[in-house]
Design a protein around this nucleic acid. Sequence first.
DNA 1: GTACTGATATGCT
DNA 2: GCATATCAGTACC
Length: 221
Amino acid sequence: MMQKTTKHFSPNTSSNKKLPPSFYLQDTIEVARQLLGKRLVHIFNGKKLSGVIVETEAYLGAQDPACHSFGYKKTPRTSVMFQPGGCAYVYFIYGMYHCLNVVSGPEGEPEAVLIRAIAPDPNEENYRQMIANRKMSFKKVAALHPKDLCGGPGKLAQAFAITRSLNGLSFQSPTLYIEEASSFADSDIVTSERIGISPYNEAAFWPLRFYVKGHPCISVT
DNA sequence: GTACTGATATGCT
DNA sequence: GCATATCAGTACC
């Protein structure tokens, strides 16, 4: 169905090793860049959902007018961002979709990285589960495009069965974690403005989005 | 291919 | 009431 023979489609090389807690305590921009090429895994109802992260956005907490926690704003929704880096921040948006973020930086600095696109690991069972989770129409499944499953924050949350029940869960969890996969070369990483921020927000133009150049699964080009 | 619409939780005024 | 870190469906060209 959706396999194409590009260099991006065989990222399963290095050892399967969870990223250590220290990874998430780094500078948020570093975390956002370094998450590209890492594998997200969610074990859901005994089934493994997995794929390699290919697009992220950094949200710089108190200093970032586009971040939910701008000015250290603390609400029931944003409170997990104040935790030390290494847990999930999942929020519900537009009354329909969930978005998955990786909390980053030290405790008290409410920063996070939005996961915007993932390349699903290319095995039948993984595709089957994600297609089912996405509740795709027969028509869509028949003409499946690489970015249809996980090419966008709302889509990948649905494909990975990410809901608010995972909010605050550590990425050291046995059922939700991020592991080493294969890194992309620096020359393959593109930096751009973030997506979906109102142009009246000065932070809309900050270069905080990172993605793998030319990858078929990224959300917008 | 682009343009518009509707779905409606959360946090703000 | 209003805006928003989105997406699918529909109507056009």
